[in-house]
Simulated scan of single mutants.
Amino acid sequence: MIQPDGHHLAELNIGRLLTPTDDPRVAEFMNNLDRINGLGKRMPGFVWMMEGSGEPGTGNTENNIDGDPQFVANMTVWKNVESLERFVWGTIHKQFYERRHDWFEVLGEQHFVMWWVPEGHKPTLEEGLARLDHLRTNGPDTQAFGWDELKQASKWRDNRCAQVAAE
Rank of each mutant, 00 (worst) to 15 (best):
H101S: 14
F104V: 08
F112C: 02
V113Y: 08
E119K: 05
Q70F: 04
G38A: 00
W115L: 00
A166Q: 13
N31F: 01
Q110E: 09
P140W: 11
N60S: 15
F87I: 07
K122N: 08
F145Y: 11
G120F: 03
F46W: 06
D158S: 11
W78Y: 13
T124Y: 05
V47H: 06
M114W: 01
L125Q: 01
G15I: 06
D34Q: 04
G6D: 14
V113G: 07
S83M: 14
W78F: 13
T91V: 01
F87P: 05
M49P: 02
R25Q: 06
N37D: 01
C161Q: 07
K122H: 09
L39S: 07
A130P: 12
N60A: 15
F87Q: 12
D102F: 11
Q95M: 00
W147N: 09
P56Y: 04
R160G: 07
V88P: 08
A165L: 13
N13D: 06
H93V: 12
E105C: 05
L17T: 08
P118D: 03
T124G: 04
Q110C: 05
Q110M: 05
L84Q: 10
E149S: 14
A153N: 11
N159C: 05
N74K: 13
N80V: 13
D133L: 09
K79L: 13
F96Y: 10
K79W: 09
L9D: 07
P24E: 08
V88Q: 12
P123C: 03
G40V: 04
Q70N: 10
G67R: 14
P4T: 06
E127F: 04
L107I: 06
D68C: 02
S53R: 14
R99G: 03
L132Q: 10
V81Y: 11
D22F: 13
G90C: 11
Q143K: 13
Y97D: 05
H134W: 15
K41S: 01
H121C: 05
D102Y: 07
G59V: 14
A27V: 01
F96H: 06
F145V: 10
F46Y: 03
N64L: 00
D158K: 12
P4I: 02
G40W: 07
E167Q: 15
L135K: 13
R157H: 02
T91C: 03
A162C: 09
L33S: 01
T58W: 14
E28V: 11
G40C: 06
A130D: 10
G54T: 10
N80F: 14
A73Y: 15
N159H: 08
R157S: 09
A165T: 14
A162K: 12
L18Q: 09
R42N: 00
S83E: 14
Q163Y: 02
D133A: 13
Q70P: 06
E119L: 05
W103Q: 01
T91Q: 07
R16W: 08
V81R: 12
E11Q: 15
M75D: 10
R100Y: 03
G40Y: 05
A153Y: 12
R16I: 03
I36E: 00
V113T: 13
G45D: 06
P118Y: 02
R25W: 04
K79E: 15
N63I: 00
D141N: 15
